[in-house]
Design a protein around this nucleic acid. Sequence first.
DNA 1: CTGCAATATGGTAGCGCTACCATCACTTTT
DNA 2: AAAAGTGATGGTAGCGCTACCATATTGCAG
Lengths: 319, 319
Amino acid sequence: MGAITVSRALREPGRVSEDLRRQIQVAVDELGYIPDPNARALASARAEVFGVLVPSLTNNVFAEVVRGIYDSLSDSPIRIQMGNTHYSGLEEERLLQLFASQRPAALIVAGIDQTQLSRKLLETAGCPVVQVMETGPDPVDMLVGFSHFDGGRTATEHLIEVGYRRIGFIGARMDPRSQRRLAGYRAAMEAAGLFDPRLITTTPLLSSVTLGRELLRDALAKMPSLDGVFCNNDDIALGVLFECHRAAIAVPKTIGIVGFNDLDMMQAAFPSVTSVRTHRYEIGRRAVAMASAAIAGNRPEQRIVDLGFELMRRESTAR
Amino acid sequence: MGAITVSRALREPGRVSEDLRRQIQVAVDELGYIPDPNARALASARAEVFGVLVPSLTNNVFAEVVRGIYDSLSDSPIRIQMGNTHYSGLEEERLLQLFASQRPAALIVAGIDQTQLSRKLLETAGCPVVQVMETGPDPVDMLVGFSHFDGGRTATEHLIEVGYRRIGFIGARMDPRSQRRLAGYRAAMEAAGLFDPRLITTTPLLSSVTLGRELLRDALAKMPSLDGVFCNNDDIALGVLFECHRAAIAVPKTIGIVGFNDLDMMQAAFPSVTSVRTHRYEIGRRAVAMASAAIAGNRPEQRIVDLGFELMRRESTAR
DNA sequence: CTGCAATATGGTAGCGCTACCATCACTTTT
DNA sequence: AAAAGTGATGGTAGCGCTACCATATTGCAG
């Protein structure tokens, strides 16, 4: 029995007679044979690796996307090569260069705001590319996510609708996605004739609950008449909620709060916090599904998938 | 200039003359040459890969360890092969088998409660092995972590010390580490003559803030005289805090709360929550440092590193 | 100046697979 | 019955690197 036949039996069982295939299976099981992925990658000039690039490993949002990716690939021979860009375009370029040199089977990257070089690297990587977490008109290849602009606008419109007027935006680490949520906020405020730049409080610092508290204090110092806040994410929202408790500001009566992402704790909070639910785990799964389909030769007809979001109305805005 | 010399210049610069080394560097930079890790692994029968096995990717605790590992390796050519065991021993065995077959440069695994097969796989992997997140007398190879038993005991002793008596334990997903914290709780309670099995409320469900709320309700239904809780982790503690708010139970007056891990939000909460701070990021860094040292041939003389923990006393137990 | 080590460089084989093409048995078409 | 498929199997070369050994080149003792 030739080595090549074994190789085939393992990779394309359909092309080997059932008889031989069974013999091979027995031998494989007995020997505990596991093909060497390195040799495989070298010979086929194509590694069974998905490169995954995210800006943060600890941010719950990306952790969920990554979990979706891992879960989707856990039963396949495909390995995952993960990279942490730390929200840096330069770091992204470096990692992309590294990843591309390994001829991955697919690349999954967060966001659509790649640098020119990164974009070129993605275009010439010679494998399916899925950008995730956002939506937009011009993906490198495929795209799964949702509109942060619409999310921000919907959240803000909700606050306006239930009667808040002096609505602030509070955000940390203003990455491109945060900027789009801010733009959505601004669009909603301007449409209602409520916009005032002094309502916006941001910082380039990494987001945290503690920072949410500080930012609310800053926002109130600047604008004591504040009666609502759209928080760039749920960590900030939780910090804002705690600061309200501490300062004895009634929520939702005196100030309304809306978060973003709808982490589990928003529902459990007291008062429970209105938030924009996003489908992060599903984004990870879809990204893998789309990449796998493209590898298998049947590119999804829908290159851009908008998974949307859902406004979860809760006590923090129940005026 | 022979190919082998280039290979050497890149791997062992000391063995190549400075002149040639510089020439090679220029050429490498110009061509953007990146060595193929697959070919390298195949030829040297040893991959520049660290296998990392954790029970969860979204659990903040492991995410921080993983971040420490990534950050430590970001400037090295070493890749990371991550596996998610989903708290399953069987899954761990499967992944370990897979990883070991790839001859990784090192293996980092969470916990010390491997199955017999897993332990054997680790012992015969032929590479440095670092178990993380715990401490214990008998590591496979090296060990970095802290004592969950002591952590649980310290947390409970603190509650006793400040005057709480009917102190409950509330925990979800009772993995071995949680069990040890529970054992520490029990030891402290028994030593003070306060132990009562009805004070313990646990569930095998995955931990969440929402679950923390439910478990406090259960605990109070079972034991209305409860005046303190040691929570298995901070998510649960946050849920307990919110449930107290909702039920208008005064914290720390009526019930004292202690969490575990000291996530950022514990400090920001209102009232701020006492918690056992653990050094997760540092554990990740140390694990890499120890593994790297062992690979380089100078095994750390200290095979077992106890990074300890720190009780952060806050308002939630300030009686 | 010779001999011999020490150091620097290079040649060659082969790591374990798979792409590509060849072969063989068997069936269908003409 | 020959020709031409069709499907299963195998041989061979080579993927890009590094281990191993061979060969310069240099320095220095005798």
